[in-house]
Design a protein around this nucleic acid. Structure first.
Lengths: 342, 342
DNA sequence: CTGTTAGCGCGTTCAC
DNA sequence: GTGAACGCGCTAACAG
């Protein structure tokens, strides 16, 4: 294990190749002001000695760590895992590394993680999924490094850069599909209304769609889960058990939607014949169940990728056209609804 | 954005509170050798000035970054996402951060990532899923920091610490379940045999089980996919289409197993009545489809957690009893097989 | 209990 | 094109 091989530094390389540290530093960093012959010589001894640049020392001297901090709710959740992949791919492309932290959407933990990330001198911050409170804002502004929000936005202060989709509009369209199918009782299976991203907006879209189309609405058609499959099954069953149960349900995410499908089936109702169900997100699960789940396809990977790309621009002081980007979503109508075209 | 607020250092705090840098350093690091009164005073000015410790400088001086590198095949894959969660949770618990890198199981990329991680002076390395070649071994040993393998192991050199499960044995037991059900033609749907973890061993377990029980074997009962749902569906369909098709299939992972279930269904065969199917891993998907998938439950989260915990021990030079830990797996018999007890 | 003094390994002027 | 020297912010002896 810990063979304490004495670390070999830029100084050793310099001495060994008969040049100064500065010159070695130049060739390591690709500075053109080095005579080809010298460069070659240095490169040679670097390989011979097995010299490995110390990024920490470089970070201290240059004040850049080529590392960004990512605060994410829960990497084991398909939605965020996909997003994280988009982030890491782009980070890697631009030679950045990411420090990944799970926040579980807990405010205190988020703040603490941001603080830790800042202490590690990350060059930028990517904040996913949580609510942005006044405290968050304070941390971000006192950070000295750029921050971009991904799959979320700041409700109050609209100035922080973000990358997301129009949740309300998407929820509205999903609900409209159900309306177009002719249903008169359309249910909603959502998450905590306190969730400013996947919670309230999706509910709001549902309500607005009903309202705009002059549809009936009943409290009993709305139930809240926690975005996981079991709650979808549970709440779906409760909702569908009624006399005047909905004949269609818009679910705030795919996991709950699949749970609802199974609840319906267990109640003896076929999907989509007797109950139409549409989800949200389009995680892999949506196309790995029968019937294939109709859903709102959110460009998860792209949100992560674009957010990271945007962050690189800030970190390089590039001029930015769009500080806030709203990516398009798309309705993916499969077999849990009747309509096949929007 | 970049308000270049002049960074305030430990020196500023020292001057401002009338003590030396050393003392400030002590209170920041919780060194007990500080008079309570002094500590309080320093803490006060730290808060007043909004001092934030610079972990990079600390890292350079102390030669510890409290950061570990994690090389993982693909974070968007449920299996690894769950593992990563286990890793991060424990890392967080021990006040470490993780730098997460996707390798896509590409040897060159893995090596390059390890090198980058080492340059960043991570205190330890967690390597997941890939094959450990001679080149890897060389990188690890020249690293000066401990490395532990998670969900993989070194086939050749058995000395590197790792945390995994007994793949062969698990595959064997899964196959035996099918044998116990009375099937005479048992198929195998696997991944690339070149994959030293999820590929070959699971196939080997299948073969050994058949052999030991004196079962028939036919080449046509074996097909290889790429661990993803579509390939499971595709290959499953090919396998099941035959005259003498298997009446039971052991799939090397859950995604393919679910694909195979759907293939069977599309061929008009009911599961498990006419075809029994058992998967491997027990990712969430397994309990979000109907019929519920019987599978080998791999303690994904635990593998990550234990591996990280093991790594912390190495990093702290604690004495280690077990350098290589083989975690238990469990058969989770649900509704895609007939037997309900092992 | 507290202060002084060296570095940690490297980037970056500024001369030459 | 190259080198000397300083400093990044902090920890770690070592004194006292």
């Amino acid at each position: 294990m810990g063979n304490k091989k004495e670390t070999i530094t830029i100084y050793d390389v310099a001495r060994e190749s008969g040049v100064s540290m500065a010159t070695v530093s130049r060739v390591v960093n690709g500075n053109p002001n080095v005579k080809p012959a010298t460069r070659k010589k240095v490169l040679e001894t670097i390989r011979r000695m097995g010299y490995r640049p110390n990024a920490v020392a470089r970070g201290l001297a240059s004040k850049r760590t080529t590392t960004v901090g990512v605060v994410i709710p829960d990497i084991s959740y398909a939605f965020f895992a996909e997003l994280a992949r988009g982030i890491e791919d782009i980070a890697n492309m631009y030679h950045y590394n990411i420090i990944l932290c799970n926040s579980d959407l807990k405010k205190e933990k988020e703040l603490q993680l941001i603080e830790a990330l800042l202490e590690k001198q990350v060059d930028g911050l990517l904040f996913l999924g949580g609510e942005v409170t006044e405290d968050h804002r304070q941390f971000f502004s006192g950070a000295n490094v750029p921050t971009v929000l991904a799959a979320t936005l700041d409700e109050k202060e609209k100035d922080c850069p973000y990358v997301t989709i129009d949740q309300v509009q998407a929820a509205k369209e999903a609900t409209r599909i159900l309306i177009q199918e002719g249903h008169e009782r359309i249910g909603f299976l959502g998450g905590p209304l306190t969730d400013p991203i996947m919670g309230y907006p999706r509910y709001q879209g549902y309500r607005e769609a009903l309202e705009e189309e002059g549809m009936d609405f009943d409290e009993s058609w709305v139930r809240m889960g926690n975005f996981r499959y079991p709650s979808g099954y549970q709440e779906g069953k409760e909702m569908l058990r009624n006399e005047k149960a909905p004949t269609a349900i818009f679910c705030a995410n795919d996991e709950m939607a699949v749970g609802a499908i199974h609840a319906a089936q267990d109640l003896g109702k076929t999907v989509p014949k007797e109950v139409s169900i549409i989800g949200f997100d389009n995680i892999p699960l949506a196309s790995q169940v029968r019937p294939l789940l109709s859903t709102v396809a959110v460009p998860m990977y792209d949100i992560g990728a674009v957010a990271m790309r945007l962050l690189t621009k800030y970190m390089n002081d590039e001029t930015i056209e769009e500080h806030q980007v709203v990516l398009p979503y798309r309705l993916e109508l499969r077999d849990s609804t009747l309509l096949k075209e929007v």
